[in-house]
Write a protein that binds this DNA or RNA. Structure first.
Lengths: 205, 205
DNA sequence: GTCTATAGGATGATAGAC
DNA sequence: GTCTATCATCCTATAGAC
């Protein structure tokens, strides 16, 4: 495998791990295991864990912006751009961890390195909505608000309650109409036996 | 000082610290320093860091629910409940770290302990909106979406860019109309000299 | 009730072989 | 390019004094 392919492989793995555990909670060792390489090699490739996270964010943002531009380039009439962008947004859930890694960055604004980087990325999205999608400030606000709610129900793994809790079911249906199936197909939180053991009190292991 | 007062003091300090650093990034030592007690004492009082975080979340949720119920109990006409709840929500920013600690919990849905707890809390809020505020599913969705956007711009510390970035200014104005002053008064990210040193590369210290 | 001292475990990063 | 071995640091939690 070429170096660049392996680099991409690690970035994809890192996206999933950062999405599950957050920036601080994710370890370079877990990323390494998920990518099938050694932990020191992950550090060697990206310099530091922080740099790795920044690259994950850059990749996620690029994918997001490209997706939106793809929708806007669609020759279909301008009507319902809002709705089409929304559907495209939810489809990004296919790239596991992508939206979640972004969301984790969005609550780290006080971090001196990640904070400025995350703000800049968010404003890139805002600029696209205003300047390329033709939204006014209110429309952009509304669109972003819907996106943040989607991120939240996904971050909460609210789909885990879909079967058993009617309120969760109603909330999910209201939040991701049309793409509910996709959200549910992400499935219950999958944990390895190791992770389940870590969750139990020490005495019970 | 009575034991219960000191307990509340630690909970308030912990809310700020968890809000700034997230669950994993926050250390019991930082909480202790912020509260002016020793680190082992913090652990002693709450058992584990996880328990402390759960109590912070419970306190935050109770305050949120009580605030909303206060608005709903107001004898003024039923019109514009949405707006009045929104204003009350933003005013919760006065309790530093409260909304941020909740937001951090909302991206930890895959955690086996915090996840279920956070989901349940979120659904309590949803139930209040549906059953006590009289919102239908669409109205509840809209309200929650607006709240999540507020959480996000606050988590991003977007107000740090208010002076220098017109797009940030516009986004903030669209997101928290009426209460912009409050958001800005939270001020630029305040960091101690120690934290600034930690942010610099080691060689530069 | 509250502190000091410290054990015990995990983690990011480096050194160096192949 | 990639791995194994390992160091240094940090952090939660416990022990035990006052």
């Amino acid at each position: 495998m070429k170096a660049e392919d392996r680099r991409e492989l690690v970035l994809v793995a890192a996206t999933v791990v950062f999405g599950d555990y957050g920036y601080v909670g994710a370890t370079t060792d877990r990323v390494a295991k998920a990518a099938g390489v050694s932990q020191p090699y992950v550090v060697r490739m990206f310099g530091t864990k922080e740099q790795l996270f920044l690259e994950v964010l850059r990749r996620a943002l690029d994918r997001l912006l490209a997706t939106f531009r793809g929708v806007l380039a669609d020759p279909r009439p301008d009507v319902d751009v809002h709705h089409r962008l929304g559907v495209a947004y939810v489809e990004l859930l296919d790239d596991r961890g992508l939206l979640l890694s972004l969301m984790h960055a969005f609550v780290l604004g006080s971090d001196p390195v990640i904070g400025p980087y995350a703000r800049e990325g968010y404003l890139e999205v805002y600029a696209l909505l205003r300047e390329e999608a033709g939204f006014d400030a209110g429309q952009a606000r509304e669109f972003l608000a819907g996106g943040m709610l989607i991120n939240t129900v996904v971050g909460l793994r609210m789909s885990d309650e879909y079967e058993t809790n009617p309120a969760a079911r109603e909330l999910l249906k209201a939040t991701v109409p049309e793409k509910l199936g996709l959200v549910l197909s992400l499935g219950r939180t999958q944990r390895t036996e190791t992770q389940r053991a870590e969750a139990r009190p020490v005495e019970a292991r």
